[in-house]
């Protein structure tokens, strides 16, 4: 049961990574790519790491297994807090440097 649920989470996480990669490759400019990778990577990494923490428990809830799962969940929370902030910081740095967003009239190179 736990294995099935963690596989389900893993599949959703892989899907988010896939959308992030597609966005990175197909979006027209810097800000759109930041948007795609920031959201997709955060959610994908969070779901994948959560699935690993769940899968770690499939032999039973011993103390050491629960502790390892807790440590993995700390990594997940760290990614969930730090990744959007890093995306925000990079986008803000681009805005401060005067990098113009893409429009349909003035196509970026």
């Amino acid at each position: 049961m736990i294995t099935a649920f963690s596989l389900f989470l893993f599949a959703i996480g892989i899907f988010f990574f896939f959308t992030a990669t597609v966005g990175l490759l197909r979006m027209p400019d810097f800000y759109c790519r930041m948007q795609a990778t920031g959201k997709g990577d955060t959610m994908g990494a969070f779901l994948t790491v959560t699935a690993l923490a769940l899968y770690n428990l499939h032999y039973g809830f011993t103390l050491s297994a629960v502790l390892v799962s807790l440590k993995i969940m700390f990594i997940a929370v760290f990614i969930f807090v730090a990744n959007p902030t890093a995306t925000h910081a990079i986008a803000k740095a681009g805005m401060d440097c005067g990098f113009e967003p893409w429009t349909r009239e003035r196509r970026a190179e």
Partner: peptide, 18 residues
């Protein structure tokens, strides 16, 4: 050097994470 604008999001998250 360019004027630096303080940013609430980055500073708060850094204060939480450091």
């Amino acid at each position: 050097m360019k004027e630096r604008y303080p940013d609430v999001t980055i500073e708060t998250i850094c204060r939480l994470l450091i």
